[in-house]
Design a protein around this nucleic acid. Structure first.
Length: 86
DNA sequence: CATTTGACGCCAA
DNA sequence: TTTGGCGCCAAAT
């Protein structure tokens, strides 16, 4: 159990629940995290996240864009492609 | 404590 | 349909 109530921790928990090949948008993650209007905060939190436990590469933009990745966009694209997500 | 920045999202023109 | 501007939240400086 975690006693951390930080918003970023909630975001990590949600993203960690994403199944292989499953992709969510920042807005969806924000909503699941408890703040439906904090899409921006989700990106801010993930940008500081370097935990491999959090498949942040499965979080895309509502526009269908990839957004960004703290390991390099190329890495994100490769991972999504490997999981069957285009 | 106040201000700026940032992996976003939606509405208007 | 595409581009621009405004609003949202959290973390960093």
């Amino acid at each position: 159990m975690k006693t951390t109530s930080s918003f970023s921790e909630k975001v990590y928990a949600v993203v960690r629940k994403i199944s292989c090949g499953q992709t969510l948008t920042y807005g969806e993650v924000a909503r699941l995290a408890g703040s439906p209007h904090a899409a921006r905060a989700v990106g801010t939190a993930l940008s500081k996240n370097f935990a491999a436990d959090v498949p942040c590469h499965r979080v895309l933009r509502s526009d269908g864009g990839l957004g960004g990745y703290n390991r390099g966009l190329k890495r994100k694209i490769a991972l999504l492609k490997s999981e069957g997500v285009k």
